[in-house]
Amino acid sequence: MPADSPNYAIARIDLPDALTHGWQVRLQRRGIKYAKFFADAPLGGIEASLLTARKWRDCLLKRIETEDRARICQRSTRNSSGVVGVSKVSVVTNGVRYTFWQATWSPESGKRRCVKFSIKRYGDTQAFELAVLARTDATGH
């Protein structure tokens, strides 16, 4: 269901044998699962429980979006380069270690781009500077 649908991330649950009737909100962002069930009876019926589920979902989405913005704009404690979106990466392929500086950014929601600069080819300082420049060019900051 598209994110702009009124019932995005909301599903109807009707289990007569278990006397369970209501709406289930389920979302997952960055590996974290969020879920809450809104039973009809205590909330005044099907429509009232649906409205309550939508309000909870909308508040959750706003909170997640705010947290994502804060995360994107702040340097992570795991960042050792000092530049957001630039990291030193080492990989081993067929027993050979390759080390490079990588610039990563998100051109739009749900998309991720990266470019790598070999330390062997450019040297540590120049590879780092190229990664910073690539990130700056791509994001404008």
Score class of each variant (00 low, 15 high):
Thr93Gly: 10
Gly140Lys: 02
Arg97Met: 12
Glu65Gln: 13
Ser5Asp: 15
Lys88Gln: 11
Ala48Tyr: 02
Ile10Pro: 00
Ser106Gln: 12
Phe37Gly: 05
Ser5Thr: 07
Ala11Cys: 12
Thr66Val: 11
Gly22Ser: 04
Ile32His: 04
Leu61Cys: 07
Ser49Pro: 01
Phe38Leu: 05
Cys73Asp: 08
Val83Cys: 02
Pro6Ala: 10
Ala127Lys: 00
Leu61Phe: 00
Arg12Glu: 08
Ser109His: 12
Phe100Gln: 13
Leu43Asp: 00
Lys88Ile: 03
Lys120Leu: 13
Ala131Lys: 08
Lys120Ala: 14
Ala70Glu: 13
Pro107Met: 05
Pro6Asp: 10
Ser106Lys: 14
Val25Glu: 03
Lys116His: 06
Ala48Met: 12
Lys88Thr: 02
Gln74Ser: 15
Arg78Phe: 07
Leu15Pro: 01
Ala3Phe: 11
Lys120Met: 11
Val83Thr: 08
Ala9Phe: 01
Thr125His: 11
Ala103Ile: 09
Thr139Leu: 07
Lys33Leu: 07
Lys88His: 09
Trp23Met: 07
Ala103His: 04
Arg69Trp: 10
Gly22Leu: 01
Gly140Arg: 02
Arg121His: 12
Trp56Leu: 10
Thr139Met: 04
Gln126Ser: 06
Ser118Ile: 06
Val83Ala: 02
Val25Leu: 07
Glu47Lys: 13
Gly22Val: 04
Pro2Gly: 12
Gln74Asn: 15
Ile10Gly: 00
Ala131Leu: 13
Lys88Phe: 06
Ala127Pro: 00
Phe100Lys: 14
Ile64Ala: 04
Leu130Ser: 04
Ser109Trp: 11
Ala35Leu: 09
Asp14Trp: 10
Ile119Asn: 02
Gly140Met: 04
Asn7Glu: 11
Thr20Pro: 01
Ser80Glu: 09
Gly22Phe: 01
Gln74Arg: 13
Arg71Lys: 15
Ser80Gly: 01
